[in-house]
């Protein structure tokens, strides 16, 4: 399955928007945190897990989804949120902890919730799995169209909840796809020291469902594999397990010195940065001209700038609002 010209433009636009967004967040994150790094300070406090380098997975998968489909994400959710169409202004405001944020500042960067596009998060590893499987169950029970996709990191597959949810999806034949973003690292722990299985596609056999691993962090190959799995789910043929090799160009979180990475690994990854690679391919294939690409990039920057400005200019929540919304109104 190959993306159409429009889809390719959408994917590139999306990846660039995501990267620009992370670049903007990264810069602002250090405001108030230098010369002495203290996570509590600055306009964006708390942990910050950036998705630089992992954009092809989000774009290649979400190219097949509509707002009605369900996505659950992780502690590293920005690229997936952007690809799913989460409101960028409100998301930025949430990351700044502003009253205009998606959750009025209650959730922050690890808890991005947007009902308009059926997007939700959890900062607890693998805990997006159950809710996505449950959404798939709900669609089936209600006879409503739509699939559910859980994005997880490769570290999540060793969590008990991951297996339980996979089996449930399989035994009930649910419209569910698990997408593993394999960036090789769970904080400082390398995949090979944590997982007994090199390719998580093999784990699909444990649930008698299709499993596929795609190397190379290539948006086209990701698009292809995701398209097949999502079409299968839509057709009522059950869940699939996908593992995509991807690259974490940032630290685990901001402030991570990354001393655990082998010498030179980071430089090699930057050379394989998927965004310039896709740009080259779009041009080489004659799918986008230099001018079109420049235009896409300029628009992406504008959108991000507008979102950041919106977030910065928004008011803080009223402190006592902390006590509201604990229960449904």
């Amino acid at each position: 399955m190959s993306p159409t010209r429009d889809e390719q433009h959408w994917m590139y636009r999306n990846m660039v928007t995501s990267r620009r967004f992370e670049e903007a967040i990264a810069k602002i994150y250090f405001e108030g945190k230098t010369p002495v790094f203290n996570m509590a300070n600055g306009p964006i406090p708390g942990e910050m897990h950036l998705s630089d380098g992992q954009e092809p997975v989000a774009a290649g998968v979400c190219a097949h989804l509509t707002p009605a489909d369900v996505v659950t994400a992780t502690h590293r959710p920005h690229h997936q949120a952007i690809a799913k169409g989460v409101d960028l202004n409100k998301m930025a405001a949430e990351i700044f902890g502003k009253a205009t944020g998606l959750s009025g500042g209650r959730g922050g960067h690890m808890h991005i919730f947007d009902p308009d596009v059926n997007f939700a998060c959890s900062g607890i590893i693998a805990q997006g799995m159950g809710p996505a499987v449950g959404a798939a169950l709900s669609r089936k029970m209600q006879g409503k169209p739509g699939v559910a996709v859980a994005f997880v990191g490769e570290g999540a597959v060793n969590q008990g909840g991951w297996h339980e949810a996979m089996n449930l999806a399989a035994v009930w034949n649910l419209p569910f796809v698990c997408v593993i973003e394999d960036n090789g690292w769970g904080i400082s722990v390398a995949k090979k020291t944590a997982s007994a299985v090199a390719s998580n596609a093999e784990r699909a056999a444990a649930y008698s469902i299709p499993g596929k691993r795609v190397e190379g962090n290539d948006p086209y190959a990701i698009y292809d594999a995701a398209g097949e799995a999502i079409a299968r789910a839509r057709a009522g043929e059950g869940p699939s397990l996908l593992e995509f090799e991807t690259y974490r160009l940032a630290g685990h979180f901001m402030g991570d010195a990354e001393g655990y990475r082998p010498e030179g690994e980071k430089d090699a990854l930057f050379e394989k940065d998927p965004i310039p690679k896709m740009r080259e391919r779009l041009k080489a294939d004659g799918v986008a001209s230099e001018a079109e690409l420049d235009d896409i990039e300029a628009q992406a920057s504008q959108r991000v700038d507008a979102a950041i400005t919106f977030a910065r200019q928004s008011a803080d929540p009223a402190p006592e609002d902390a006590l509201t919304r604990v229960f449904a109104a």
């Binding site: 902890g97 944020g101 929540p317 902390a322 006590l323 604990v326």
Partner: peptide, 11 residues
């Protein structure tokens, strides 16, 4: 107080 811990600093 008996509420989940909010993200925003002021809260």
């Amino acid at each position: 107080p008996d509420v989940p811990i909010p993200f925003a600093r002021v809260m």
